[in-house]
C-alpha cells in the first residue's frame, strides 16, 4: 500500500508541475521549453535552505519565491521575442541553470547532489510520513488546480487566451500583452517552483541530473497528452505517464534486455508526442471552445 502512496505522491507533484506549464503553454501559448529550470531552482533553493536548518515550510515558500524571481528575470527580456525564439531562449536558460548547479560546487555540491533533505516536521520522515505527505500533496494540487480554474474563467485568464489566439486582437482590446505574458510566466514559475520544492523534500535527494531536458519533455508530454488549455488535463496526463513508468518496474524483464528499457521508453514518449500532434493535438481532455470546433 505504501508503494501506491509513493506513486500517487509522485504523480501529484508532476500534476502540479504540468499545471504550471499548462498555464504558459496551454493558456497563453508560450513555448516554454526550459520549464524544468524553475522546478530545479525551487528544488535547490528549498533544499539548501531546509538543510541549513530553516523550517521546511518557510524554505518552501522561499523556494517558490526564488523560482518566481527567476521567472521574472527570464520573462522580462525574453518575452520580447516571438514564438520559437522564446522557446530557444528558455531551453538555453534551463541548460545554463543546470550547468550552474553542476559547476558551483561550493553551493550545490555539484554533481554529487544534496542528500538528506528534511521533510516538514509535522509530516515525519520515512514511511510513517507517507500518508501525511500524500494529503499535503492532494491539498496543494487541488488548491493549484482550483486557482488555475478560477484563473481561466477570470478576466485575466480570458485575456491570456486572447493573447494566445491573436496578439493584435488583444492589443486592439487595450490589453498590455507584454505585462499579461510576464505575469503568466511568473505565476507558472512559482507553481513549477512549488512542484520542485515538493519533489526535493519528498524524495530527499536532488542532483543536477534530475533537471535535464528530459524532464521538460516528460512534463510537456503530460500537458499535451492530457489536453493543453484545460484544467484537469495536465493532471490526468501526469497520472498516466507516472503510472506507466512505474508499471514498467513490475514487468519481468530478462537481464539481457535491461539495457533496452530506458531507450524504448524514450522512443515511446517521442512517438506518442508526434502521434498526438498529428492525430489529436488537443489531447485526451479537449478544451471547450464554445460552438467553434477546430
Amino acid at each position: 500500500m505504501d508503494y501506491l502512496l509513493h506513486i500517487l505522491i509522485v504523480a501529484l507533484i508532476y500534476g502540479i508541475f504540468a499545471i504550471s506549464l499548462n498555464l504558459e503553454l496551454g493558456y497563453t501559448g508560450l513555448y516554454n521549453f526550459g520549464h524544468v529550470a524553475f522546478f530545479g531552482i525551487g528544488a535547490y533553493t528549498s533544499a539548501l535552505l531546509g538543510l541549513s536548518g530553516l523550517p521546511v515550510s518557510l524554505s518552501m515558500a522561499l523556494g517558490m519565491a526564488a523560482a518566481g524571481v527567476a521567472g521574472a528575470l527570464l520573462a522580462i527580456p525574453a518575452l520580447r521575442l516571438t514564438g520559437d525564439f522564446f522557446g530557444i531562449a528558455t531551453l538555453v536558460f534551463a541548460e545554463m541553470v543546470r550547468l550552474f548547479f553542476v559547476n558551483e560546487r561550493w553551493l550545490t555540491k555539484g554533481p554529487m547532489g544534496l542528500p538528506g533533505i528534511p521533510r516538514p516536521s509535522w509530516i515525519g520522515e520515512g514511511i510513517a510520513g507517507l500518508p501525511m505527505f500524500l494529503i499535503f500533496c492532494i491539498l496543494l494540487t487541488v488548491l493549484v488546480a482550483l486557482t488555475g480554474r478560477r484563473l481561466a474563467t477570470s478576466p485575466f485568464g480570458r485575456a491570456l487566451k486572447v493573447v494566445r489566439e491573436d496578439e493584435y486582437v488583444a492589443q486592439t482590446l487595450g490589453k498590455n500583452v507584454l505585462s499579461l505574458k510576464i505575469r503568466a510566466v511568473i505565476l507558472g514559475s512559482v507553481l513549477a517552483g512549488l512542484a520542485g520544492c515538493l519533489w526535493a523534500h519528498y524524495i530527499s535527494y536532488i542532483s543536477p541530473s534530475d533537471f535535464t531536458l528530459n524532464e521538460t519533455i516528460l512534463v510537456l508530454l503530460c500537458v499535451v497528452l492530457g489536453g493543453k488549455g484545460t484544467n484537469w488535463g495536465p493532471v490526468l496526463g501526469a497520472f498516466i505517464i507516472i503510472f506507466f513508468q512505474e508499471a514498467l518496474r513490475f514487468l519481468p524483464i530478462p537481464a539481457d534486455f535491461g539495457r533496452l528499457v530506458a531507450p524504448l521508453q524514450g522512443m515511446v514518449y517521442g512517438f506518442v508526442l508526434i502521434l498526438i500532434m498529428l492525430k489529436r493535438p488537443e489531447g485526451i481532455v479537449s478544451e471547450y471552445r464554445g460552438s467553434r470546433q477546430c
Binding site: G113, S204, Y205
Partner: peptide, 8 residues
C-alpha cells in the same frame, strides 16, 4: 552518487 542518494 547513487549510493549516497539512498544512504539517508
Amino acid at each position: 552518487s547513487n549510493f549516497l542518494a539512498v544512504c539517508p
